[in-house]
């Protein structure tokens, strides 16, 4: 998986709370493979109207934020469906980091798997950063994972992230390779479990 150490770029504020993964990637694109260009349909129904024309009011359509690398969101960003393709869409569009006061549980797990950082700050800080960006849209933001900082203009904020997720992002660890190191432990667990909980293994038909 991809590493994340730091990212500097335009940062797009999206103020909607409970922005769910159905909004990030509408369900009708779930049958797409990544090769079909899933980044193009990121936030599709928020970004485009029924005729496929851009909605000028959606922040990601504004000139300064079109090439954003960072999104500043509101509470419970990425709640809802477990679709990992929502993270593929963000990544393939060019987003490397989402900053928000809280995240949907499955979404932030999926983000780590794809090298996308989910950085947690307070409601007030998110509000403040959004305000600064709305005043000065071209402001570049730098997010650094090692030190857990966000630099926006002359302000520096500290963000929270689960320490395990932080290490995984910094190192780009592959889960499966890691798990395979414990093959013997898994086998021993299964053998004991099959004796003690024989009922838990379904009959083969």
């Amino acid at each position: 998986m991809d590493k994340f150490t730091s990212s500097t770029g335009a940062a797009c504020p999206i103020e909607q709370s409970n922005l769910n993964t159905d909004q990030i990637l509408p369900a009708r694109y779930l049958k797409w493979t990544r090769a079909m260009g899933i980044g193009k349909v990121l936030f599709h129904d928020l970004r485009f109207d029924a005729e496929g024309k851009e909605k000028p009011d959606f922040p990601l359509n504004k000139p300064a934020w079109r090439n954003a690398k960072i999104i500043i969101g509101a509470r419970n960003f990425g709640c809802g469906s477990s679709r990992e393709a929502a993270v593929y869409a963000l990544y393939d569009y060019g987003i490397r980091c989402v900053i928000a006061p809280s995240f949907g549980d499955i979404f932030s797990g999926n983000a780590v798997q794809n090298g996308v950082l989910t950085a947690i700050i307070s409601d007030e800080e998110a509000f403040e950063i959004m305000g600064a960006l709305k005043r000065t849209p071209e402001l570049l933001v730098t997010v650094e994972l090692e030190r857990q900082t966000i630099v926006c203009g002359n302000r520096t904020y500290h963000f929270a992230i689960d320490p395990v997720r932080r290490m995984r992002l910094l190192n780009g660890w592959d889960d499966i390779a890691l798990t395979e190191n414990y093959g013997d432990r898994i086998t021993a667990f299964k053998e004991r479990d099959q004796r003690e909980r024989a009922w838990a293994f379904p009959r083969v038909d």
Binding site: R83, A85, G109, N110, D175, T179, K190
Partner: peptide
């Protein structure tokens, strides 16, 4: 609990 596609692959490969 629900999981994402990378975790589905991990479960298929390791049952953990």
């Amino acid at each position: 609990f629900g999981i994402g596609a990378s975790e589905v692959a991990h479960v298929l490969m390791t049952q953990t």
